[in-house]
Amino acid sequence: MIEAAMIWNEPNNKSHWDPELDPDWSRFAEMSILAADAIAAENPALTKVLGGISPIDPGFMQRMKDFGVLDHVDAVAVHGFPLDWNLWQVHEWPQKIAEIAAVTDLPIWVSEVGVSTFGAEEVQAWGLKRTAELLRGNTPRIQWYSLYDLPRSWEATTRHKEAEGSSYYRHFYMGLLREDGTPKPALEEFARHTPEMGLVQWFHFEDQRLDDAVAWMKRLGVTYLRTGLSWADSFRPGALDWFDRQMEALAPFDVTLTFCFTPEHRGEMPHHTSPPQVPEEFAEFCAAMTRRYAAAARPASARQAMRATAA
């Protein structure tokens, strides 16, 4: 079941949206409104969520409100990593949610929160427990990032580079499972908080971990998951076959689908963070994916008419 569609990921973070090409975020706002309306046209009942912001910035949320974006979505989302990258303490989580609540009456999802094991695996276990204590009852969604460590042979999708030291390398140690698939101490702690706490797991194109991830999530009692479908990947040969396989495997869970990543040849600049040349094309991608994986249920009368016509 697809429970929600999320429009982009961390739009106020230059790892995911280029502020030099869109310094006031007006182009992002236009694209988001087009995407939200396209999703709603395909399935009015599907929850539309503004991509989780990182850092948690009420000023950015106010800007989205002023542009009218919040009139076209059903929820907003925030991402926080106070034990790794943010300049605030983990105990400030309720305050951070309150800052966004002061700007909007929409539900506020914590659609990505996590702790790396870069320094010590015990830190992640403590951080997960404390995060759950602080967020339960304060948000309708808590989605832990992530199930797997990022393989060291891959590149992290971030502005941080290796020269920045641990800021970069922490991205590779966010999983509850190590790269070799063995559990970290926090895995047992995580299982104590399901199904109230969900997961975030990005699956790369033709990701070999997909079936193993499904088995682990069932074992852990996970009921809801956030993942993504990449607009850029949609231009790869065999993209729809991979998307179909991914979504079929994830059918047992309530899935929030994040639509993001500009194809290089369709951006103002050849990079996934670029605003698209034609924002309607991103909206068309969102509509097509909604139609394919989260189509609105037909009324019984319409289904009966179709059966009669077929007969």
Rank of each mutant, 00 (worst) to 15 (best):
L229N: 08
P195V: 10
L150Y: 01
T256V: 14
F172Y: 13
A215H: 05
W242L: 10
W242N: 15
L210H: 10
T273Y: 03
E164C: 02
P183Q: 01
L187I: 04
D244K: 08
P279H: 06
T258Q: 11
C260K: 09
Y169T: 03
F282V: 04
S234V: 09
F261H: 14
A239R: 14
L257F: 00
K184E: 12
E189G: 06
E281R: 15
R152G: 11
E196C: 10
M174Q: 08
G165W: 05
F190I: 14
G175H: 06
Q201Y: 06
V255W: 10
G238P: 14
T157P: 01
G238T: 13
F282I: 01
K161L: 03
P185C: 01
E284I: 01
T262P: 09
D244E: 12
R209P: 04
E155M: 03
S230P: 07
E248V: 13
V222T: 09
W242G: 10
A186V: 05
P275E: 09
A249I: 06
D149V: 00
L250T: 08
E189R: 07
P270L: 11
E281M: 12
R170Q: 09
Q208N: 07
A232G: 13
G175P: 06
T256Y: 04
H272M: 13
E155C: 00
V278Q: 14
L176Y: 02
D241P: 03
T157R: 00
E162I: 02
L199Y: 05
M269R: 15
S166D: 14
A249T: 07
V222L: 04
A156H: 04
D244S: 11
A213E: 03
L147Y: 03
L225C: 02
Y148T: 02
A156C: 02
H204G: 10
L220G: 05
V214N: 07
T227W: 13
G181A: 06
L210N: 10
A239I: 09
E188H: 09
M247P: 05
G267A: 10
V200L: 13
T194Y: 10
R192M: 04
F205L: 11
D212Y: 06
S166K: 07
G228Y: 11
W231L: 02
R159T: 08
D207W: 11
V200H: 07
R219L: 00
A283T: 09
H171S: 01
H271S: 14
E248F: 08
F253W: 10
H193R: 08
H204C: 03
V200A: 11
Q277F: 04
T262K: 07
Y168K: 13
R152K: 10
L210Y: 05
T223M: 04
L150R: 04
S146Y: 04
Q246W: 00
A191D: 05
A213N: 07
M247N: 05
H271P: 00
D149L: 07
R209E: 08
V222Q: 04
A249K: 12
P151C: 05
T223K: 00
L250S: 06
P185N: 01
P151H: 12
C260T: 13
M174T: 02
T273E: 11
Q246H: 00
A213F: 02
E162M: 06
E264K: 14
D244I: 04
F203M: 12
R170K: 15
A213W: 07
M217D: 08
E206D: 15
P279S: 01
A163C: 00
A251F: 06
R219K: 12
R192G: 02
P276F: 02
G221E: 01
V255N: 14
S234P: 06
L177M: 09
Q277I: 13
Y168Q: 04
E189D: 13
